[in-house]
Design a protein around this nucleic acid. Structure first.
Lengths: 196, 196, 196, 196
DNA sequence: AATGAATGAGTTTTCATTCAT
DNA sequence: GATGAATGAAAACTCATTCAT
């Protein structure tokens, strides 16, 4: 086994382990040891690669966010019309990689962590802004600016709310229902606000 | 200073202190000592009255929930029509006591705590069900059952999502905007779904 | 209810409660509150009457010892011959008030407490010496001094050992068997050592 | 200083430290810190290796018991006749490693701990049964079954009782006297009961 | 690259004890 | 005579983190 190039492998393994461990524990009450055990390495190694628990957490958030980003970008690329782009964003947010128990737990704990940790807050703010900006951009082409802002805010809240409510459910999240609810919201708001 | 009948006073003080301390800290990483100090008593006394940190947490959740309940009940009582009842529920959820930074922080951390603590989960589930049931009951009188269910679910998610997104904001939450967004959602959905 | 003369009643109740609580807990891991609750009074009152937990413990030991003393004295009084006196001492030690689970537990914990508490040690030493002296006195009339000493030591050890071993048993102690064993020991030793 | 394979060394050191600390304190009122300090390590390390104070206690009991077992087995091996085997068991029980103040203190506290701790109780019960079974086995070859049982019970009680009484003594225990007393008991009982 | 060893700093929790009423 | 209120002090336990190998 080559002893070279282990770093990216370990980092990825630890980040995935963090997500699973957070879910298993239900919150950030996970210890570094648990995460390391889940990844099959020693706690010391996790420190070696990430420097501290907080930094591992931020790296995990960034990872989740960038995964989501990739899917959103892909969805936007394959869309032709503004309305299709909206649907793409929604589908990406409720994608099977994102909208599953472990990821939902992780997101939720990140929101809490963001309350007390500047780094985490910054990362989440970036996500929140980007989501709104993506939605707004597409919506501006469908209705007036003020209405677009309004609907973007609502859509973002709806997405986050659906995540939150699903954190409480024991059953597997119903992606189709979540998508339908969000799509309906946009449709109804566009109709009510008057299309361009 | 009276030395008798202190228990209810202390319990209330500790619960309020817990909410404030959770907000100040940003999460449940508050210590019992911090909560006790905030309440002006010793940590030992907090244990004396609540038994454990977890039980103090659950008591705090229950308190927040019952406060909300009282406001919702009041709002429902003073409403004449189903549509007014919906507005009442929404206003209660975004009431000035509820929709403020400290309470928002507390709610968020409760959701996380519910992931790992059976008692907390139970309490929150009760709240989630009651909210949906209240919404649904009013909605059923305005549109067909299936649509009512759908809108109730969306409204609940929207409310929770607005809380979640405001947890990230430094500025004071805009109650009026949150209410308008939710009301608009209901109106548009009812219009789209066809009134009774 | 007269408010006078409560002291002896409370003291006795607390001492009995201590014995029961020690047994229930299995050791001195009893708290003052538990003892007080068992006695139906507040922990503060226990302090009022005994000054400290340690003093309550010593008082409880003294009580147990004096109960035993009374029974031994009575047994000695009603005995005619030295051999009868020996039997009386044995019967008293395995009397139904002494040789029962709660008392056995209490004795055992007292022995441990005596290791670290001068007062307790003194009290127990007095008991140990008195028991040996009583035995020796009767034995000296039945065999030579050296043999008497020997047998007294053995009898005392046997009695204590039987208590100790019964502390481990779940079943009710078999008083008759314990008495027989001890009597047999004395008989056999007297026969072997040669009677006077 | 080798930095690997420390675990067994630390475990042993901590167990020995526990015995000494228990003796120094006189009871289980020892703290983990005291034990750890005695072993020259941090309290955290003791927890790391044993999980909890209770588990360290049980490990210490097991250690004492297995040491005794080894000595008993050796004594039994080097004996030819049943009577010699009895002497071997007795000598092992009053061996210089066993019958010394620190070990006596430890045993006594174990008996108390066994009252409230299931694990400890189980361990001690095993010891009690094994001692009786060893004695009985040898005795059955020297007298009838019923008498053998009787004497075995008495011998075991005598041994435990001698330990108990020596817990109260400040002077060093007199091993020879304890052995003589126990041997005399067996001899006299065998004579009285009739040899096979 | 990787880990077992080790700990300091902190957290919850327990309890005997005091005191005002 | 009696107690609820209150706490200081100390205990067990946890965990991120460091370090030598």
């Amino acid at each position: 086994m080559p002893k070279i190039g282990m770093e990216p492998i370990r980092r990825k393994a630890l980040i995935n382990a963090a997500i699973e461990a957070i879910h298993a524990r239900g919150s950030f009450e996970v210890t570094m040891s648990e995460i390391a055990r889940q990844a099959g390495v020693s706690a010391a190694l996790a420190h070696h690669y990430f420097g501290s628990k907080d930094q591992l957490i931020v790296a995990t958030m960034r990872h989740l966010l960038s995964e989501l980003s990739v899917e959103i970008v892909a969805a936007l690329r394959s869309s032709q019309t503004p309305r299709e782009r909206l649907s793409g964003i929604i589908r990406a947010n409720f994608g099977s990689d994102q909208f599953r128990p472990a990821t939902i737990s992780a997101w939720l704990t990140f929101y809490v962590k963001a309350q007390s940790m500047a780094d985490a807050r910054r990362v989440l703010s970036v996500y929140a802004k980007r989501l709104r900006s993506n939605l707004q951009h597409a919506l501006t082409q469908l209705t007036d600016r003020e209405n677009a802002q309004h609907i973007a805010e609502g859509t973002a809240a709806l997405i986050d709310g659906l995540y939150l409510r699903h954190a409480l459910l024991d059953s597997d999240p119903d992606r189709a229902a979540a998508i339908r609810l969000t799509e309906d919201y946009i449709d109804a708001q566009l109709t009510a606000g008057g299309n361009k």
